[in-house]
Design a protein around this nucleic acid. Structure first.
Lengths: 340, 340
DNA sequence: GGTGGTACTTGACACGTTTCAACGATCGGG
DNA sequence: CCCGATCGTTGAAACGTGTCAAGTACCACC
């Protein structure tokens, strides 16, 4: 079932059928109708491969995320979707699951499909050969949620150092002198910067930040970190926990509640991302909000601009500012004690 | 940068390059090496459009979900991913956002791309012309999380009536005589069956189920339903709430906690889906667990079988059984009172 | 030295579309 | 009655790949 069949049925040439589909205004109304009728009668569907082969590039862009089950990324995806659709491109969602091999495989297949461009949160943003090749061969790439100074690609990110600082200042202001940081691994730059931002802010008021590193940023790892914290002797126990993301924070909250620790009276908790479930937790979580949908929208706009402008496009590195949302989980003023 | 460039560089014909890529064993080792070197030197990447055009069909399958932000669907996606990858197909994730127009548009584009098949939770499963056309023209389709008796496609679903029944029996056994159902709209078959299953089970012990219909199954709507329930006069107030899904249940939990209602002592809550956040809630949610990843895996297996077997394939309708997971939010025995 | 066989390699075609130069028909103006 | 212009339509070529019949070179064997 191809364009020639339609042409035969409508008693015109293949070129005319193509014109009806792509430049209807150049075809005489009567002919156009005959062709459209034939298309409907035969149930003809365009062959995108053939169009693409002829055109040289597709009409799709891809978003490669680290973890499809993390609400942070699904919100980024929703932001990207809208812009892509408005720009006439289809958005393909791919999940690397934090696995370099799977990420590479996705990039291979996407490049073979000649996608217009790729939005990606790479597993490893410093030594990513596969990604560098992709860029070098001319596929537009925008880094999402990863700051960068590279001249050959755009990036959109959120200032993680500032996010950490906001959390640190908030906890210091509420009278906390000893705070735990739960999350990891710290080899991930995001995690490290959030930690460092908070540590610096706390140090300014003479408070300290203790690192409880986890294997990943999941609910289960949050529970583990909470157990480690709760088992410290009372005198050395932190009075607050700042978590690398909300999944970890939810794990901490759950484990602490299970152990009868009152939140926020005995322990304050601050998360990161402000996913929907942060507010919906039975003790609503204080969290550092990232403009997730905005991140997706802006990244897609940058990508589509590069696709449209080609050589004229100027690569940009956009950094958004996070925002602290104070909720019940940390909203309690601690009586300041003498430092031991 | 095409196969001919590579051929020229390696001083062979285009056909030989193609053979190196597709049937390396028929090419002499020395020639093969020359070609592979040329490919590496030029950074050649296969053109999938041309392959597909030649082959007639692609190597991708699509999963079209109702809401990418609902953890239920992301878990289904993870199940599907694994099987697709093992079968050598790439999985494309598309989001309809419960919007029929967007679903139709995705199906248009997917059919134009000649995907191998489509896994879909349709917005409307009774009068879906676009989907019927797709099937009629020969694209394999598997309905996900939607029961069906249709002879022209497979389906995988979970027994919602039974899920409702499990929740109803559990609450009746815990001594509840008046239970609320929160969720909607009831025009969605899933929601209605969960309600009916619970209503029937409760009726068997002389208890009743009051419907609090919502516009959709989101956290925000759960909060609204909770407000409506809490404002009933004490004598008519239910002692338990069964929710159409966990998002609604989290909303109910949050609003009730805010109002000082103790869960589960004053009010028991049962959710549906058993998403990760159900267990991670500060008061862990009792929930009806659906085998989400299993759903994705089985659906993909059925699809790949149809792709491979063609005419020989027998369409099947698989129904899984849900399972009640009892946690703190309902784990409290109510003192039975005389019925008023 | 010829025959048959084996091991590679080649060249041309087909897939379905878009594009574009060229062609044909129609018509108004001179 | 012819010319030029305008409007529609056509046919062929190209996009990059896979396939396959046909070809070449080499070798062993009689």
């Amino acid at each position: 079932m191809n364009i020639k069949e339609v042409a035969r049925q409508a008693k015109v040439s293949a070129g005319t059928v193509s014109n009806v589909l792509n430049k209807p205004e150049v075809v005489a109304p009567a002919t156009r109708k005959r062709v459209l009728d034939a298309i409907a009668a035969l149930g003809y569907v365009r062959n995108e491969s053939a169009r693409m082969l002829r055109a040289g590039s597709s009409r799709t862009i891809a978003l490669v995320v680290l973890d499809i089950a993390n609400p942070f990324f699904t919100d980024v995806a929703r932001g990207a979707e809208g812009v892509a659709e408005a720009g006439g491109s289809q958005l393909l969602l791919c999940n690397s699951g934090q696995n370099q091999r799977r990420e590479d495989r996705h990039l291979d297949l996407l490049e073979q499909q000649r996608v217009q461009g790729v939005l990606i949160t790479p597993v490893d943003d410093s030594h990513n050969t596969r990604l560098d090749e992709l860029v070098a061969r001319g596929t537009p790439v925008v880094l999402v949620d990863r700051g960068s100074k590279r001249r050959d690609r755009c990036s959109v990110a959120v200032d993680d150092m500032l996010g950490g600082r906001l959390a640190g200042l908030h906890l210091a202001e509420r009278g906390h002198r000893r705070v735990a940081f739960a999350g990891g691994p710290v080899s991930i730059r995001q995690v490290l910067e959030r930690h460092d931002g908070a540590a610096k802010a706390l140090a300014e008021s003479g408070a300290e930040l203790l690192l409880f590193e986890t294997d990943s940023t999941s609910v289960a790892d949050g529970r583990k970190a909470a157990a480690a914290i709760a088992e410290l002797p009372a005198t050395r126990r932190p009075t607050a926990v700042f978590c690398a993301n909300d999944l970890v924070a939810l794990g901490v909250l759950q484990e602490m509640t299970r152990r009868g620790v009152r939140v926020p009276q005995d322990l304050a908790i601050v998360g990161y991302d402000d996913i929907e479930f942060a507010e919906a937790a039975a003790i609503p979580l204080t969290s550092v909000r990232q403009p997730r949908e905005q991140l997706g929208r802006t990244a897609t706009e940058l990508l589509l601009d590069e696709v449209a402008s080609g050589e004229r496009h100027k690569h940009r590195h956009i950094v958004f500012e996070p925002e602290l949302v104070v909720r019940a989980s940390s909203n309690h003023r601690r009586r300041t004690r003498a430092v031991t």
